[in-house]
Simulated scan of single mutants.
Amino acid sequence: MANRPRVLLSVAVSLDGFTDDAVERSPLLTDASDHARADRLRADADAIVVTGDVLFKDDPQLRVDCPGLRAERIATGRPEHPLKVVFATGPHLEPGLTFWRTGDARAVYASDADSTALAAMLDGRAEVTATGPEPDLAAMLDHLGLQGVRSVLVEGGALAGRLLAENLVDELRVCVVPLLLGGTGAARFLDTADLTVAPGKRLALIDSAPVGDAVVLRYAPKAATQ
Rank of each mutant, 00 (worst) to 15 (best):
R37A: 11
I206T: 10
A38D: 06
E166W: 03
G103D: 14
P67C: 04
A38G: 08
L195P: 00
L168F: 06
R188P: 05
H143M: 02
D123G: 04
G77H: 06
D44A: 15
L62W: 06
L118Y: 07
G183E: 11
T131E: 10
R150E: 15
M121Q: 14
D34W: 05
L69K: 09
R162E: 15
R70Y: 02
L122D: 06
R106Y: 10
A160E: 00
R4I: 09
A209R: 15
V176M: 10
V108P: 05
A158G: 05
T192S: 12
G96A: 14
G183Y: 09
L122K: 01
R173W: 06
L181V: 12
L153D: 03
G200S: 08
L179F: 03
A139L: 06
G148L: 13
R162N: 14
V152E: 08
R40C: 05
K222G: 15
L41C: 01
I74P: 00
K57T: 14
E134L: 13
V13H: 00
V64L: 09
A117K: 11
A71I: 05
G132I: 08
L69E: 13
D207E: 15
L180N: 02
L179E: 08
V174M: 09
P135L: 11
E171R: 12
A38L: 14
A126M: 07
G182Y: 04
A120G: 08
E24Y: 08
Q147C: 14
R6F: 13
A36W: 07
T89V: 09
T192V: 12
D34G: 01
A32L: 13
G68D: 14
G124I: 03
A45T: 09
E72V: 02
A214N: 01
V54K: 08
Q226T: 12
L8F: 03
L172G: 05
P82N: 06
A32Q: 12
R101F: 03
R162M: 10
R25H: 14
A214K: 02
V176W: 01
D65N: 06
R37F: 13
A2W: 08
A45K: 05
I74C: 01
R106H: 15
S14E: 00
P135A: 13
K222I: 02
V54M: 14
L172I: 07
D58F: 12
D21R: 03
A38S: 09
D207T: 10
D34C: 05
T19E: 10
E94P: 00
V216H: 02
K84N: 07
V23R: 09
